[in-house]
Write a protein that binds this DNA or RNA. Structure first.
Lengths: 237, 237
DNA sequence: CGGAACATTGACCCATGTCAAGTGTCGTGG
DNA sequence: CCACGACACTTGACATGGGTCAATGTTCCG
């Protein structure tokens, strides 16, 4: 984890939520293991903006989109939470975002109140939560750099690379993965329309950087060129 | 503070850094009061991306811009730190951003190492740091919503409203303030060019929403309409 | 007073948004 | 197993917000 790293647009580039490594999380990991499991269906809301922030969740399987909305319906997805990621860090009474499953999902649920008490008496736990929060901040800032400065091509390339790195870290093939979210979700995450996302995938295909055997199945062909695109080196391609 | 609030684009909307209210900060406040003061000139770097994260700073006077850069020179300002704001929260060895003064600035400097030790033994201090970090996260996400979804007019309106609210909280006139940063800084913060920022100020003037007696002196004429603009209600104006 | 940095304005262009057809893809029921 | 319907995705034609380039004003400081 890290709020302070990057340079080289590290791992957490996009996939926002912060996960806690499998170190000596004794207390916390155990606490989570005992926490009740909740299942929600695709498209179901875990919580909405304004709801009481009663629990800290950890995704076990599935995927969740976290987003804010404007009054006229525009939506900004702040991040996707995948297995291992925590949702609901923070200290406020109410959630500031909506959390919606993008596929059937199971989560562990820890009551926020008890966690707060535990953290007050356990510096190691407190540090863990602090690190997780710092990880989210770093992710938000990476995305900010993306939506503020990068072109559509760069945004989509960066998004795919982030998924690739996540796969890599899990010991899976970094060149091949499924997209659990729709083009609309990707657009709302990157600040693009669905049409632009689609056209950009096509352009990346034509550039020989990837293949799309199915529209949700990605095969990266040239990770190095994708990386230089994202970092802003590369003659505008 | 709050990672979880908003709805109504609360206070921290833009001016990112998190400040610690003047509550019973006994320990922390005292610690800061004793911390050595450092002065830096306008345009001087406080630290750069990759530098060792040796200190936590608190701005006493002046203003600092925090930003990341892409290889080709594009710059995204992540936030501005004003008096009372903390800089350098996080747990990493190295800074992930650059911090540059935009006017002559004085800061208190707390060694990160000692702070880390103190936080481990003082839950109240740890909580305070956690809250400050959560505040930064909320600010980053607000800005993300802005750069991802809002038009130039909405971005500039939101930026000015955030400054207005900051003034208001300080007991100053919310309708009247100085901009410490240049148009370039505003552009790099909002994901716009300097020309667009300038044209947008002109448009807001023509709409009767503000006046600009000098280019750095803002006078808000209709805060309510500015607010509905930012929230995405208002017939596209 | 003069010059440098910053800001505004105009003309033009292009990346991305919008609107409108198509074309998969997948789950369901016949 | 196939056919249908519902979505999701792609593609095209066109519109436009904001970027780019260039000239002109302003502000501020020495």
């Amino acid at each position: 984890m890290s709020i302070m790293s990057t340079h080289y647009n590290g791992d957490r580039a996009f996939p926002s939520r912060a996960s806690l490594g499998p170190r000596k999380d004794a207390g916390f990991e155990q606490r989570l293991a005992q926490a009740p499991l909740r299942r929600i269906e695709a498209k179901e809301l875990l919580f909405a903006e304004g709801d009481a922030a009663s629990h800290l969740y950890r995704v076990e399987t599935g995927a969740i989109a976290l987003y804010k909305m404007l009054a006229d319906g525009r939506r900004q997805i702040m991040g996707f939470a995948y297995p291992g990621d925590l949702i609901g860090l923070g200290i406020e009474r109410e959630h500031a975002m909506n959390a919606q499953a993008i596929k059937p999902t199971r989560l562990r649920c820890l009551p926020a109140a008890s966690l707060r008490v535990a953290a007050a008496g356990d510096p190691a736990l407190a540090l863990k939560l602090y690190e997780a929060l710092a990880g989210e901040l770093a992710a938000a800032r990476d995305l900010l750099l993306t939506t503020g400065q990068r072109s559509a091509l760069e945004r989509v390339a960066g998004f795919l690379l982030a998924l690739s790195r996540r796969n890599d870290r899990s010991g899976l093939d970094p060149t091949r993965f499924e997209l659990p979210m729709t083009r609309t979700d990707i657009g709302d995450f990157l600040g693009l329309t669905i049409e632009t996302v689609s056209r950009t995938f096509t352009k990346l295909k034509l550039l020989g950087l990837l293949e799309l055997p199915r529209c949700s199945h990605v095969l990266l062909r040239d990770i190095d060129r994708l990386e230089s695109l994202v970092e802003g080196r590369s003659g505008s391609v």
